[in-house]
């Protein structure tokens, strides 16, 4: 069966797997964004706390994903649970780092003016600092997303959902019927999904960034 024939036959399955893949990544990114941005707000302007939190979350990135998925099995079993957890652990660092960078790069004069006008700490974050840091925060989320699209493919090792199933399945049966087509479809699917999500972030960035700082 040629690759084209394979695609036309397995199309519905591939779409389902791709959707699952996207779902698991976006779920993880949503959680990681909340955690990363909140932690970033908490530690911005506090060098020691910042170094500690960035150190810890940065260390997560050094753990090989295959190993991390394996380590999570005793705790969370198989399936979506360990997949999302592992992805969150990887995604927090870029989002947190960019949030801290973004918040700390708000010009002093702007911060001073905001304080002088009587905006409270939370109001300054909400109305001034976060909107100004937004493009940088979003860049962090984008980096994390692309990274997670790739890592999520490995999640098939813990029976996680997504395109990894095709890749792992195909590679395990290499030489067998459609083995190469499976692996190829999975790999291409991951790449196309990454591209699509990247474009999505460009659009979201355009729509949500103030014209005054774009």
């Amino acid at each position: 069966m040629s690759f084209a024939e394979y695609i036309s036959e397995r199309w519905p399955d591939i779409v389902v797997l791709t959707t699952e893949h996207a779902q698991v990544v976006l779920t993880a990114i949503a959680i990681a964004s909340v955690v990363g941005v909140a932690a970033g707000i908490a530690v911005a302007g506090r060098p020691r706390a910042g170094a500690l939190v960035l150190g810890v979350t940065g260390t997560m990135l050094t753990i090989p994903s295959f190993a991390l998925f394996g380590l999570l099995i005793p705790l969370l079993g198989l399936g979506s649970g360990p997949t999302v957890t592992a992805l969150v652990l990887y995604a927090v660092f870029p989002i947190l780092r960019n949030t801290v960078t973004g918040l700390e790069s708000v010009p002093r004069a702007v911060e001073d003016a905001a304080r002088g006008l009587g905006l409270g700490r939370w109001e300054r974050v909400r109305r001034v600092r976060l909107p100004l840091a937004w493009p940088v925060v979003l860049a962090g989320v984008r980096t994390a997303t692309l990274m997670c699209v790739g890592i999520a493919a490995i999640a098939a090792a813990v029976s996680g959902p997504g395109l990894g199933e095709l890749i792992f399945g195909g590679l395990a049966r290499i030489g067998g019927a459609n083995a190469l087509n499976d692996a190829l479809a999975g790999t291409l699917g991951v790449a196309l999904l990454a591209l699509a999500l990247d474009l999505l972030f460009v659009v979201v960035g355009r729509l949500t960034t103030s014209r005054g700082i774009a």
């Binding site: 004069a109 702007v110 109305r127 100004l132 937004w134 005054g212």
Partner: peptide, 10 residues
């Protein structure tokens, strides 16, 4: 203030 500190995103 001297540097004005207008909010650039507003």
């Amino acid at each position: 203030i001297q540097q004005v500190g207008l909010f650039p995103h507003l």
